[in-house]
Nucleic acid binder design. Structure first.
Lengths: 236, 236
DNA sequence: AATAAAAAAGAACGCTTGATTGTTTCTTGA
DNA sequence: TCAAGAAACAATCAAGCGTTCTTTTTTATT
């Protein structure tokens, strides 16, 4: 057998891309074999090379395209909005919705950066920097205007993005809370964190050093029974 | 050659453990080969099997021990503190310091859960649930006492932990900000988020749906040049 | 109908992997 | 001093890996 009836290059390319996202999301880039990927699409492994140069480039294409999409859509959403608080809410809502609807892509882009070769990683990191820069600039402007209480915009940027991105570690469509509700809850946390009085933070807080921990007996009998894992949920 | 001079079982076991953490952190579990690991310790790959049952169990041992350590130390730190706000600050500070000093372990425990076989993953997830339960209970108590404005303690727990854990994606010892400063900044964000007036969050916020995004040209010439990557930093 | 291009099959490659086995050497306590 | 056993070596295995190359079949073009 050779060329199969009804076969079409563009369609196959898209199928490979989607299957790649799915398998990398499920098993990880290293763990996914090209034979697995080929089987998922209904091809022989050798035939994949009509559609990408090698395995590494498949990953790079997926991650780069995702990052460019993310950045472009964020900039589009923010366009025309000038008020820092409104921009912060817009950014937060955009980020959350995007991450709830494209969990696999986001997950891959965050987890598989280490699997990218140096040059490819540099490209992706640069895109991420630009994306982070959007939020950082919002925080800086808001601090300048006096509406935000942010001492370190860079740190706050990392903190906020980590928090928002974390939603795709546990969110599953059809859960108890709707996307809108989650956006409201998370955005509330972000806005409070940025606009808060800072009084609590400013109060000197004496933390126990990690070493000074005193041992304490833990109950050995009441550990929670693991429930059946929800499909595909990394957190489950 | 065979048994080497000065060889000692306990010491070798510890060396294997440490090398395992180091290599899994750097390359990922799937990407780390046992020959690599053996070479790192100065052994032949076959000798490793004196110290673990198989590769999977090595990962499991590392992750489980880390989770038990994390949980135990957190409970010890919180012991005796009853005020919700103080407990929240203590938890936040503990989590941050722990994650700044044990980045590799934390990273592995978060990233390689997917590489654990079902039974092992269930054990680790149960431990993580107990750990998350500590924070959730703090938030519930604080909400009950009226000092926190937290609508959904579970969601807030995930959000806060994501934010705090995110620090080990970029923190490197010897950076511009000290551990104490970072603890203060992050804890301030957490406390503000939890205690905040909630006014901003309660105000209905009309978010653009993701689909309604209008394309906008992006500048193609001003993208940031990627700097030389800091060693080992996943984010760099 | 003839021809070129596209799409996929399928075989083969060199290599690495995790795992296992049997053997040898060294250390240590009695 | 010497046996017991811990520690490490060396060799091997089948399986799977990413990749390349050639061949075959289908589709599109003229």
């Amino acid at each position: 057998m050779a060329r199969t009836i009804g076969s079409n290059g563009a369609r196959t390319a898209e199928a490979i891309r989607q299957a790649g996202v799915k398998l990398i999301y499920k098993h990880g880039y290293e763990a996914m074999s090209l034979r697995q990927l080929a089987a998922e699409v209904g091809l022989q492994s050798g035939s994949l090379y009509k559609y990408f140069e090698n395995k590494q480039n498949l990953l790079f294409d997926i991650v780069r395209d995702h990052m460019e999409d993310l950045l472009g859509k964020a900039e589009a959403d923010l366009a025309g909005i000038t008020d820092p608080l409104a921009r912060l809410k817009t950014f937060s809502a955009f980020h959350l919705r995007y991450h709830m609807t494209r969990m696999a892509h986001v997950f891959i882009a965050n987890m598989e950066i280490r699997s990218l070769e140096d040059e490819h990683r540099a490209v992706v990191v640069a895109l991420r920097r630009r994306y982070e820069g959007l939020l950082e600039e919002i925080l800086r402007q808001g601090a300048k205007d006096g509406v935000f209480q942010v001492r370190e915009p860079k740190v706050a940027t990392y903190a906020i993005i980590s928090m928002l991105t974390g939603i795709c570690m546990w969110y599953r469509p059809g859960g108890r809370l709707s996307q809108d509700e989650l956006v409201e809850i998370y955005t509330g946390l972000v806005v409070n964190g940025a606009t808060g009085p800072g009084a609590a933070a400013a109060k000197p807080f004496e933390a126990n050093p990690l070493e000074a921990v005193t041992a304490q007996p833990r109950d050995g009998g009441t550990r929670a029974k693991p429930r059946a894992a929800r499909p595909k949920a990394v957190r489950a």
